[in-house]
């Protein structure tokens, strides 16, 4: 990947520190992934895990659990965490607002309303059918927000305000529907908590193109955003087409977050917090910021999902909730250690 092969003109010390951190984070991710396959309600031996990959036996219960449940779940955690944190890094840089969250573009609000309408009007209660409704709802609301926000010509503030207003509107509409329909609430409750339960390979495969496209657009955007973070005038004078660059970044966020919300429900917090953690390793370079955010976000989701499966939490705490439970204190610790300077 170009991002990795780029030799930036950094002082050697800083560049090598970054690479050591990168290796450390990658190692941590591999370790977490392995643990995530190993542990759960039913502990499975390392040997069975290995066997399920090299000599799959459909009559072996361990193999079924690994390949049918834990592996898709692990991949979903990778994708969801990486996508949310990566797009969080993009939107914070795009709006030059450290408190921006990918949900600000109205994706979550639109997706939620889509799902509620689907339950309420069509009486559908199978989570698998929510995928495309949520995707559609998120897409529609982001397009609305983007154009209300000036279609790339407005200020970042206008974009945020448009997003906040529309999100609030969609959430209020959704809630008023839930108030009048108890049955909808029961179905919606599980979706909205954000979880990785029951995600299967076909769903992942269907959403993979969106994640891939989002990742490619995000990589291009990270290069653009390096210029954009110097201000609009400077970016333009550096030869950037600012409106187009904004549009590309928003497309990246829509692909990544739309796919995530339709797969795992609206997961807050990861997109807000992880980019701040990543900045400690990446410095002010968005290309590294995106890379570290993606990896750390994936790590946080896998960890949250793993911890959420521990018997202490009844064996099934939603990963989205758990991510906030773990990420919150971690961020407080980061702030206290640095006096907030790194944020």
């Amino acid at each position: 990947m170009t991002i990795l092969e780029t030799t930036s003109p950094l002082s050697d010390r800083r560049a090598s520190a970054r690479q050591i951190w990168l290796l450390t984070v990658l190692f941590g991710l591999v370790l977490l992934s392995a643990l995530s396959l190993r542990f759960g309600l039913r502990p499975i031996s390392w040997y069975s895990i290995w066997e399920s990959f090299v000599a799959y036996d459909a009559t072996n219960a361990d193999h079924l659990v690994i390949q049918g449940m834990r592996l898709p779940r692990l991949m979903a955690a990778w994708l969801a965490g990486g996508a949310l944190a990566g797009s969080g890094a993009l939107i914070q840089s795009l709006t030059r607002n450290p408190l921006a969250d990918p949900g600000l573009l109205g994706i979550n609000g639109g997706a939620s309303l889509g799902v509620i309408l689907c339950i309420f009007l069509l009486g559908i209660s199978d989570p698998a059918s929510f995928v495309w409704v949520a995707m559609g709802g998120g897409l529609v609301s982001t397009v609305l927000v983007f154009f209300l926000g000036g279609a790339g010509r407005g200020t970042p503030l206008r974009l945020i305000l448009a997003g906040a207003a529309l999100s609030a509107l969609f959430l209020a509409l959704g809630r008023s529907l839930l108030l009048i329909s108890q049955r909808s609430l029961d179905v919606y409750r599980f979706w909205v908590l954000g979880g990785l339960d029951g995600i299967e390979m076909p769903t992942l495969a269907a959403l993979l193109p969106f994640f891939a496209l989002g990742a490619a657009l995000a990589a291009v955007s990270s290069f653009n955003l390096n210029a954009m973070m110097l201000g609009e005038d400077t970016a333009r004078s550096l030869g950037l087409r600012v409106g187009l660059a904004r549009g590309l970044a928003v497309c990246a966020i829509v692909c990544l977050c739309g796919a995530t919300v339709s797969m795992a429900g609206p997961i807050a917090f990861v997109g807000l917090i992880v980019p701040h953690m990543a900045r400690r390793f990446s410095g002010a370079d968005m290309r590294w910021g995106l890379l570290f955010s993606t990896l750390l976000g994936a790590g946080l989701m896998i960890l949250a999902d793993l911890v959420g499966r521990l018997p202490v939490f009844g064996g099934n705490m939603q990963a989205g909730v758990m991510a906030a439970l773990i990420g919150g204190p971690a961020l407080v610790w980061l702030i206290r250690r640095n006096g907030g300077a790194a944020l």
Partner: peptide
């Protein structure tokens, strides 16, 4: 531009490097 602003933590070399943007692209950095 008049009084340009930069994000916190940006080093001088980072900033000067951004000046190369028009000679680069996302694929040839």
């Amino acid at each position: 531009p008049q009084s340009p602003s930069a994000p916190e933590g940006l080093t001088v070399r980072d900033l000067v490097t951004r000046g190369r943007t028009p000679h680069q692209s996302a694929l040839r950095q």
